[in-house]
Design a protein around this nucleic acid. Structure first.
Length: 372
DNA sequence: AGGTGCGGGGGGA
DNA sequence: TCCCCCCGCACCT
């Protein structure tokens, strides 16, 4: 398994290096290559000093997308779009989830949103969040450049990310949605509502009431969740209420996505392979494939799901990358180490992981944590 | 609310 | 002059 994944990465690197040889252009060149023999698959996690030429039809390239948290940087050149990496938001306490994974949240792109984000607390331990800046380009953030020329979109990355991968955008969005859902259905808000109802009916205020919002038989063991749910990151149908998924995806330029940019959400890419990747492809991107996003617990009235007063608990967090990158990534920042085994430890959460809230069974929840 | 792109402008090398 | 960064604005989802 691991070997296969490794081989896959090796092949990709070979392919990339071959391509690099051909990529004699620079994004700043006055004239870029006019005749391109082939275009590249969209790379979700471009790293190091790479160049890619995408088809101008590629929706993701059109959107200058990256799973790194890249913000627009003004280079005073309207022809070349420049973006710089924001790094990753980590737990100030360097906490780990029960299964040993670290917290790697996606920095908000919007400045204000990012400041707001940093005032929140670690969804795992309630500790402070810390923005780990990217300094992979001579001490400055890694920069990505995009340039549209005719039928092609030229991409160039400068610098190697010196930090772990954050959540993908969709993971972060899912987490925010989860947070909203949690707030809307939180015990406190429901309790408040019920108090108001009771007050309106009787004028009395209930003194004590259980926070359980569901019947005991609605409790779902954590192991079941871990066994049946997977992250929906970049899954096309977050808004779907059916519970059915179009197809799973893996992410990253590693492995699977090089073969098939499955993350290119329902986009009609010309180069889309004619098959759906099996779920096991997730193994090619071990850090991201089977992790559910989780509430980004803010300090205030919103407490993190896992450790809130309710008994709701969810599978661990985003981007379970192994070890802060300088060590883990090193010369190969995008090559990632495998996750700790999940299936085997599926029951380890045991008693501490129960889901008590009805809304865990509703569509919102399953949209965020689709079934495998 | 947050993401994205654009442009003005300050400051350092 | 180049590069980095901050800011505000407009537009979009």
């Amino acid at each position: 398994m691991l070997k296969a994944a490794d081989d896959s990465v090796m092949e990709q690197e070979d392919s990339t290096s071959q391509h690099k040889e051909m990529a004699s252009w620079d994004i700043n060149d006055i004239k870029l290559p006019q005749h391109v023999s082939h275009t590249d698959w969209f790379q979700e996690w471009p790293d190091s000093y790479v160049k890619h030429i995408y088809s101008s039809e590629d929706k993701n390239a059109q959107r200058h997308h990256s799973s790194w948290a890249m913000r627009n940087t003004n280079n005073h050149n309207s022809r070349i779009l420049k973006k710089s990496c924001l790094g990753v938001v980590v737990c100030g306490n360097d906490c780990s989830t029960l299964d040993g994974r670290k917290i790697y949240l996606r920095p908000a792109i919007c400045d204000k949103a990012r400041q707001k984000q940093q005032r929140k607390c670690c969804p795992n331990c309630n500790g402070p969040l810390r923005l780990l800046s990217c300094r992979g380009h001579g001490g400055y953030p890694v920069t990505n450049f995009w340039r549209h020329e005719g039928q092609f979109i030229f991409f160039q990355s400068k610098g190697a990310h010196d930090h772990p991968r954050p959540e993908t955008k969709l993971e972060a969005e899912a987490r925010r949605s989860m947070q909203k859902a949690k707030t809307a259905f939180s015990p406190s808000s429901l309790r408040l509502k019920r108090i108001q109802e009771i007050e309106s009916l009787t004028g009395a205020v209930p003194t004590q009431e259980p926070l359980l919002l569901s019947k005991p038989d609605a409790h779902m063991p954590h192991a079941s969740f871990r066994g049946h749910l997977r992250k929906s990151s970049q899954e096309p149908m977050l808004s779907s209420c059916s519970g059915q998924l179009s197809y799973p995806r893996t992410s990253g330029e590693d492995g699977a996505s090089r073969e098939a940019p499955t993350w290119s959400r329902s986009l009609s890419l010309k180069r889309t392979p004619g098959h759906v990747l099996p779920l096991t492809k997730g193994a090619h991107h071990p850090f991201r494939s089977d992790v559910g996003p989780l509430g980004d617990g803010s300090c205030g009235e919103k407490s993190p799901l896992t450790y809130s007063g309710s008994c709701l608990s969810l599978p661990p967090y985003p981007a379970p990358q192994r070890g802060p990158c300088p060590v883990a990534s090193g010369a190969q920042p995008h090559r990632q180490l495998p996750l700790p085994p999940r299936g085997s430890g599926g029951d380890r959460g045991g008693g501490g992981h129960q889901v008590c809230l009805n809304y865990c069974n509703n569509d919102v929840f399953f949209n965020l944590y689709p079934l495998r």
